[in-house]
Design a protein around this nucleic acid. Structure first.
Lengths: 97, 97
DNA sequence: CGTGTAAGGAATTCTGACACG
DNA sequence: CGTGTAAGGAATTCTGACACG
């Protein structure tokens, strides 16, 4: 896994990097838009990828989009990715028969 | 600046990533081998590059090298880099005359 | 709905020092 | 020299709640 995906950054730093309040960052997690890991003690850990995600989210919210819409959009993307992956695997499987 | 160089990781996470104790990590800073940044509150912030540096340092110490030797080695490398850079710049300057 | 805030507590980090060697 | 540790304090983060709207 690349550095970009490693969850090692605490919420305070994330707040600085994104310009969002800690409240906002935690709320977007509550709405299932981001998924930080946790230390043994329970503190949240984010990745650089999460920083980019958060900036995207913030922009969409500024444009008037609601969190559930952003989430739905995200789900749709993941769905398409899954279908494409299935297609790939299926094609590969058929070739082996 | 790439993600690798951004100083955003706290000492606890660095300790986990490197397997070194916080004591060791702070000591290597005292010996001028690494240079974390500080938050307003004074907590140390490291980069992924520092993680790699620390692993290197730990290996050298395990091989019996002393911190001042590691530092000397580092200084020498930086020195060579500087000389090469000067050479480059000088050559470029002459070409313009 | 999305965000601010005060509240109390817990986890994290800091420094300077003593210890061993 | 390099590292462990106990000590006391400060910075950081956590959760649940009230507020506004």
């Amino acid at each position: 896994m690349s550095y970009k995906e490693k969850k090692v950054i605490s919420i305070g730093v994330i707040s600085e990097l994104t310009g969002l309040s800690e409240r906002q960052i935690r709320y977007y997690e509550e709405r299932k838009l981001i998924f930080p890991e946790r230390s043994k003690g329970g503190t949240r850990k984010y990745s650089f990828h999460d920083v980019e995600k958060l900036v995207d989210i913030a922009n969409k919210i500024e444009d008037g989009m609601q969190t559930f819409e952003i989430r739905r959009e995200e789900m749709k993307k993941a769905d398409i990715r899954n279908k494409m992956l299935r297609g790939q695997l299926n094609a590969a499987f058929k070739m082996r028969k």
